[in-house]
Structures are given as C-alpha cells and as structure tokens.
Simulated scan of single mutants.
Amino acid sequence: MTRKTLGLIAAAGSAALLIGAFGFQFLGYAPCKMCLWQRWPHAAAILFGAALLAFGGRVWTLLGALAAFATGAIGVYHTGVERGFWEGPSSCTGGGTGLSGLSGADLLSTAGSANIVMCDEVAWAMFGLSMASWNALASFALCALWIAAFRAPESR
C-alpha cells in the first residue's frame, strides 16, 4: 500500500473513534475531563490525514503517529486512574483531598459541581476493558498504521 492510503486509513480510524465517542455521549454517557483530552489528538490525526492527502510527504505521517500515540498514552493514564494504579487530576477524581479550602457554605451549596463526571469511575466496559482502555488499544494500532505509512512508498 502507498503512504497516502495507509495514512488515510489511520485518519479514518481516528474519525471512527471520534464518531464512536460522540455516539456514546449521545446515548447518555457523558465524557469526563480525561475522555475529552483523548479526543483532541484524534482530531489532530484527522487533520494530518487531510494534509497528507493534500500535500503528500512524510512529515504528516510522523505527526499522525505522534497524535495517535498521544491519545493512546492518555488512554493508558486514564485506565490507570480508573483502576486505582495512580491518582488522576484532582478536578475529576474522588480523592476527597480538595475540600480543605472550602467554607461551610461552599460544602452545603448545591450550585456548581453537580455536572462533574468522575474520571476514576468506569461508565462502560466490555470484556473488562473501559472505553479509555479500548481507546488506548485502538490508538496504538493506529499509531502502527501511521508508522507503516511513513515507511511506505509515496506512490506506485
């Protein structure tokens, strides 16, 4: 396969994962902060695929591989937070350490943080893997496709 073909397949994979994420959101699975972080590199990979199509060249494949690796790494980090291997961001995890600066009125207030989706809770899983885990696996596969695109000939 050619560089453009492999790169476009990888970019289409990122598009499919983004569509899936928005589909789950449409079904009522609100994304947490870390879920949203995982979406940005997929969007970048789609743009890199479009640039590869328009301009050709290897630089876009390297950037696509970096984007896919980045979202995969965020997915691994998110999975570790979900499984309690390490702490996540205090703004979306249930460590309870963020209460020290709050007044009594703040603690009793019902305004504000009711819409926070916790990053350390698994909203959906299949075969024991959360959405973050599946994103990581798929993203590393896409990274491999981007690397194959880098190594492939420009055209036949």
Rank of each mutant, 00 (worst) to 15 (best):
M1T: 05
T2Y: 06
T2D: 09
R3K: 11
K4P: 11
L6Q: 02
L6N: 06
G7Y: 04
L8Y: 12
I9L: 14
S14Q: 00
A15M: 13
A16V: 06
A16Y: 04
L17T: 05
I19K: 04
I19Q: 01
G20H: 09
G20T: 10
F24I: 00
F24S: 01
F24K: 05
Q25H: 09
L27N: 03
G28V: 01
Y29V: 00
A30I: 02
K33M: 15
M34E: 11
C35W: 07
L36E: 08
W37E: 15
Q38F: 08
Q38D: 06
P41Q: 13
P41V: 07
P41Y: 13
P41W: 07
H42Q: 12
A44K: 03
I46H: 12
I46G: 01
L47Y: 15
L47C: 10
A50V: 15
L52N: 02
L53K: 08
F55T: 15
G56L: 13
V59A: 15
V59D: 09
L63Q: 02
G64Y: 01
G64I: 05
A65Y: 04
A67I: 04
A68G: 04
T71W: 03
G72C: 12
A73N: 14
V76S: 05
V76P: 02
Y77F: 12
G80M: 00
V81G: 01
V81S: 10
V81W: 07
R83D: 14
R83V: 07
G84H: 03
G84M: 13
W86C: 05
E87M: 03
P89H: 06
S90F: 05
S90G: 06
C92S: 08
T93E: 09
T93G: 03
G94I: 01
G96A: 09
T97F: 08
L99Q: 15
S100Y: 06
G101R: 09
S103H: 05
S103V: 02
A105Y: 12
L107S: 09
L107E: 13
L107D: 12
L107K: 15
L108V: 03
S109F: 08
S109C: 11
S113L: 12
S113G: 14
S113W: 11
A114V: 11
I116K: 13
V117Q: 07
V117C: 10
V117H: 05
E121K: 03
E121W: 02
E121F: 11
V122I: 05
A123P: 04
G128L: 07
G128K: 00
L129S: 01
M131V: 01
S133W: 07
S133R: 02
A136C: 11
L137Y: 03
A138I: 11
S139G: 05
C143N: 01
L145T: 00
I147P: 02
A149W: 07
F150N: 05
F150Y: 10
R151C: 14
R151M: 12
A152R: 06
E154M: 09
E154K: 15
E154F: 13
S155W: 15
S155V: 14
R156C: 14
